[in-house]
Amino acid sequence: MKTTRIAGAIGALCLAGVLMPGLAMAQYPNREITMIVPFGAGGSTDIIGRIAAQALSKRLGVPVVVDNRGGAGGTVGTQAAAGAKPDGYTITVATTSTHVVGPLTVKTKYDPVKDFTHIGMIAETPYVMVINPQLKATNVQEVIDLARKDPGKLNYGSAGQGSTTHLAGLMFLNATKTDMEHIPYDSNAKATAALMGNEVQVLFGSMPAVLAQIQANSIKALAVGTTTRSPKLKDTPTLQEAGVKDYRASLWLGLSAPAGTPPEVVKKLADALGESIADPAVGELLEKNGADPTKMSPQEFSALIASEIDVYGAIVKGMKK
């Protein structure tokens, strides 16, 4: 209650701040902004997108409406965003999957660099290797042993063919020279439910989708994909610590607009995004959902995307043998 009221007051102040110069300057934004979330509602990208949408809405003084367009590892919605009018009224959540992994694994019609004007980062989330508690394993090595004993018997889930969670799984199989069957779902939430129901035994899930279930002990976390431990799961080792060499995978989420969006509009959005992330209330919400708020300028974010494309490109190429 209290935080809501404070947030409301901050929102009102920001609203006033946006409206006043808005009268003198160009009229952007003067109507609702559509934020495409290229994944199903209820998944981690959706949650974080919605938090950002609400924070932006408060600062820009217009509704920021989330439009869920899931499918094909996020490339369906991203394609729609690439083709949208570059007027600042359509923005999209750009993630590791839509702007790095997707274009590398799925035949996309968009270019993640050329077809977008990147606005900035929202947050970063580690992958967590989680298993169904019925699986007779207490650590990563025992899962590897089980998989080696019976190649192809275990199932691992993902949020879709060619999704980052799929790739995180493939990376694991590649690094450990094991074989498991890949079962694609259409969202992180559904994949997590399938893990709880033991339809799949292993999942490289995004932190926001699995955190609540880990805390409730309905699934077991064995390791995180980042190179350092996550503050939310202090007792869970990294995959590197658990003996999987060179394993590193995390998911970042940011905002992008179609290429050709006017620089002053991008600046306005980037400023509003920066302020949103710096807002402790927003930060708390993001962290509650398993994501670490990360600030990046449009330039830094573009550079990150370009470098990740190189890194993942090499991995994907190596896997396609």
Binding site: T3, A41, I47, N68, A189, T192, A212, Q213, L285, K288
Partner: peptide, 27 residues
């Protein structure tokens, strides 16, 4: 309790919950 929205309406509800910082789950 599971955080799995059944349909688009439930997904919207879930989104509204999350925005308010209520994380659905067994707890």
């Amino acid at each position: 309790t599971l955080g799995i929205p059944g349909d688009a309406v439930m997904a919207l509800m879930l989104g509204a919950l999350m925005i308010h910082g209520l994380v659905p789950g067994p707890e």
